[in-house]
Design a protein around this nucleic acid. Structure first.
Lengths: 218, 218, 218, 218
DNA sequence: TATGAATGAGTCTTCATTCAT
DNA sequence: CATGAATGAAGACTCATTCAT
């Protein structure tokens, strides 16, 4: 059971090599998908990018579709994972900070996974009913988080009266569109993360706060 | 010269029948594409939906791709056509009204073409370089319109200082996301157009206006 | 029964119109086939050339294949019809004259039906087993005529000993190739019929005659 | 560096297998095309003949057209390659021998590639402008060789005055027709190569030589 | 008789997946 | 484990022929 068991050691190293290979293929697929899109990308493209043989691919992934799923699942869980539920506290600033942190975290993840983000925002829709379902579930979860935050804010008198469901669409939609354009258009980038997040906050909060005297962005 | 010339009459009726058939096929394609997406839809699906034979399809449209293009082009031109450039006048209310009218017009078009809107918002990306180009051109045009309106608003002291490009992404993104969700989710609809437009205006304007005392929604 | 029976007259005129139409279509098909070849020619091409509707074509000919057959049959019977069996007479010159006349007649027919000749020589092979059969029958008949003439010539001591079958291939082959090239290449034409026939005679006879002192071409 | 390097060995054997398979498919296509002709042959026919799956075909050849081209190109280059330009020497016999060798070589190639010859002589015309071009270029080259040989012969006083272009058509035409008939008709074969070549020589030379006392065939 | 819209069998080609080596 | 040749289902498109008007 100890690590110095030669049998286990071999196993471990084999496992490591296998994982390394897996990652290489995933990486190649990520690149290919983000450039050409799911449908325009062939398994052959991934093979070429990864420098492996056809059979090898299917040794690690059961299908083209599966590897795409896995890439997106990873992205989805990263995003879901980086968002923290707003902690109900006594003072406003605290909530704002949490919201700010959340947005910043999400933007960080998106920017840090340029390729996956592009895939998620452009290609991950309309593949088939199965996948649409999954993706919808993901987005619903995000909508719900935003919606609950809004409701909470309304209860606390921080957020003006509004249809929270609709506004949750607005909030996520505005972020999605901006991120996609920023990552896609070469001449649209060049903005630092700070600016981006502040613009998001300003845009959203000034529209959401009942009390216009609050100044969210320092 | 009169319409009751039998020859002309026959011609006219033939033309009518032809257009009717074309519309039927377009309609079938619209439905199929909006449900299954471009790639998952086969010409056979369209034939089945339209109740016609293979050859008939190609009698009216040269390819699967072409009919898809035509559907989207129609949608794009409807949207582009219903938007009026904001007329620069002396008083704020006037501008707001114009903006309101524009948004209302767009929302009307989108709601009136549920299937096409779904296609436009979900599927019309990543098909191929050619089409992406066209679609980008369309969105750029919209971005520019919004951006120019924002700049004008800033000049006139109505709009707070902001990165107008980024904010144009926000504005369109929020509307796109909301419309897609509204048209896609069965339980999310049920909102009347009035409410939707007012929410859009509130959400956007309260974030954009420098003077928070303005009350855009009556 | 007389021609002035109004009913018969109408019938006759109808028959005439019908034949005229038939000829127009045949003519259009001839042109189209000779330019684009059988396979590259579509029924639509013929319709366009003839200025008729799809259905009309099938009112006169049961299929694309049939009209092609008919064109070639016409050509074949013209050729077969213009060749006269060599009349066995006592003197050589007479035979030569007959041969000369035959060749001249064939060349006349071929030159007078440029389009059909091209079709016959280029396209009328490899269509399908059925047609190949027919065409072979036609050529066999020609081979046989030449072969019998050669045998006769040998019996009469005019033709040198040779494999008459092989030589019949040579004779027809040389004429076929030349005609095709002459009709096909624009810069190869310009030769008058006289020259062509004399060259054919010289080429063939000087090789076939045992007695080299004979001077076939005047 | 030696051949028994296991890696190289495997590579070499793989290459061999690939070539073998290629040849099998080529062979199947050759057979199918020579029997049914290009247009009447479907890729499915070739697959059935070769005993392979659809995909396999396209693994070795990009299209039906391509494999046909390759077959003919091979035949064309074999023919072109086996013909030697007549070497200008002082005595007649020498020239005749060279001519004889050339004809013999061509006949050998044609007889040794029965199927390809049939394809070349029957089908390789009227496929499309592209291919007709190629084939014409090939024939023009042959015509030119014959024509130049004739001109040379005329200069040397060996060949009687004649239109060398026309006669080059005669010469090639006679050989083409005979070969096609010989290879196509089952009952027409049975002649040995010697006889065939001698008949060709006799037929052509006795018509071309000014001096009829020359006896080309021993 | 003439029309031309409709038909659908037939073909080529692609590409994700399998499997023997 | 790795390989890449082989597979064959699936899909787009053509065009000769039919038939209702």
């Amino acid at each position: 059971m100890t690590a110095d068991n030669p049998h286990d050691g071999r196993k471990v190293r084999a496992e490591e090599r296998r994982n390394k290979r897996r990652e290489e293929i995933l990486s190649a697929a990520r690149k290919v998908f983000s450039i050409k899109g799911y449908h325009a990308s062939s398994v052959a493209d991934i093979l070429a990018e990864a420098g492996i043989a056809r059979g090898t691919f299917y040794l690690y992934f059961p299908s083209k579709r599966t590897i795409f799923d896995e890439l997106l699942e990873g992205m989805v869980s990263q995003i879901t994972g980086c968002v923290r539920r707003i902690d109900v506290g006594p003072n406003t600033a605290h909530h704002l900070e949490q919201m700010f942190d959340n947005i910043q975290a999400v933007v960080d993840v998106l920017e840090g996974n340029r390729e996956l983000t592009i895939i998620l925002l452009r290609e991950a829709v309309g593949l088939d009913a199965d996948f649409d379902q999954k993706l919808n579930a993901f987005y619903y979860r995000l909508y719900d988080m935003v919606e609950r935050a809004l409701s909470l804010g309304q209860t606390m008198g921080l957020v003006r009266p509004c249809n929270t469901r609709l506004v949750s669409y607005f909030v996520l939609g505005s972020v999605k569109e901006m991120m996609l354009q920023l990552l896609t258009d070469d001449h649209a980038s060049g903005l630092d993360r700070e600016t981006i997040v502040r613009e998001i906050m300003d845009y959203n909060l000034r529209g959401l706060f009942r009390d216009p005297t609050v100044e969210p962005s320092a």
